[in-house]
Design a protein around this nucleic acid. Structure first.
Lengths: 211, 211
DNA sequence: TAGATTGTTAATCGATTAACAATC
DNA sequence: TAGATTGTTAATCGATTAACAATC
């Protein structure tokens, strides 16, 4: 909440804290100490306290952390209290899977439109949405207050589409295309490179084999 | 290739090197210096040289790196020269998308079977595979020399299924379930937590808003 | 008050960057 | 040989862990 930049390592750990705290909350646990949480999550208690203190003190000496309060504070830090309208670009296997995947809506990420440049897919139903032609994307973004675009298209189309999205005022891109996007610094980009992930898995197997 | 443990940070960068080198190779580029590559990839030349030297010297003073050679060496390090048989557990939206997604086969990851516990899906066609009941999983793993299982099932089933997979000799789990799996140390686990990724995106938007 | 546990400072560890000698 | 660029050592930076005083 203050001016200082929080390191990427800390941000990357927040969703995991959020998940564990959500579980504790669901179990009806009221308070948790950094020590208890550290055993549960297999990280050091020191790291937990340092991480939370990046955002100001959420705990109380001699007591620990109130689970529900901490859970809600992390939600606020992550911006999960805000609703986000998103569109999905690409109605191939991955785009369709994401469009049909309900769980994100629970967290306030609402799919408002799905776009593809393949006429064979136009009008196809995906939950509350039907696939629209790419030409309608720009107008749709402006009219429906869309802030996130999910890029589920081949890598060679991704750069061009990203440019169009930036031009019509999108704030963030969730990029599943296997390419590094070049966008202005104020555009938030989060990459999901599945093949990179699979290669890391492959490395793990190869290393195991070498033992 | 030697005894020393390579840091996770280095491993995580290898797929990206591999991607850029593949592009250079496709463009017919023969040699590249750490300096050139650093400008292309927006990392320091120092880091590139340090990273590669973890695995022994791939370059030559005064010349740089031979693109094709380096590309092939990274493939070997990542174990991409090996073929891997995999099965997909869960034929929901995500499981089906992964089963239909051809690109992984190109890299030697071959989908040999798809399993689900929903009888309504049994026999459903997904490329070369048909959905089979979960009860057949163990035998299939043993008979078809499967080393990777892709977990595309809800989080509350994931722990149990992971245990069964470990018991029947799987080597690696590509985990899309939103839970931390508890498995023996010799089992390779690579997590793809999409909702974590979406939360990081959300943080980026929230931070941007606060400016 | 005594005990517990945070918030925070200090110490350590590891990763990144800089510098340069080795060598093609 | 001279120029280029790696491989590698040293310096710096940042992140993690340890320690403990503050405080509930």
């Amino acid at each position: 909440m203050d001016e200082r930049e929080i390191s990427q390592a800390v941000i990357a750990r927040l969703p995991r804290y959020y998940r564990y705290l959500g579980d504790l909350k669901d179990e009806g646990v009221e308070r948790v100490s950094s020590q208890e949480l550290s055993e549960l999550m297999q990280v050091t208690a020191s790291q937990i306290r340092q991480d939370f203190n990046n955002f100001g003190g959420f705990g109380q000496q001699g007591y620990g952390y109130n689970v529900e309060y901490l859970y809600n504070e992390i939600a606020k830090i992550l911006g999960l209290n805000e609703k986000h309208n998103l569109i999905i670009i690409g109605a191939g296997n991955l785009g369709r899977a994401l469009a049909n995947y309900m769980n994100f809506e629970r967290r306030g990420f609402i799919v408002r439109g799905v776009f593809d440049n393949n006429p064979a897919l136009y009008g196809r139903e995906l939950r509350r949405n039907t696939v629209q032609p790419m030409e309608k994307m720009e107008q749709f973004v402006k009219e429906h207050n869309i802030d996130i675009a999910v890029l589920a298209i081949p890598k060679d189309e991704a750069g061009n589409v990203a440019e169009r999205l930036v031009a019509c005022g999108i704030k963030a891109i969730w990029n599943f295309a296997h390419v590094d996007l070049q966008v202005p610094g104020d555009i938030v980009v989060e990459n999901v490179h599945l093949s990179d992930s699979l290669m890391k898995l492959s490395y793990g197997i190869a290393k195991r084999q070498r033992r």
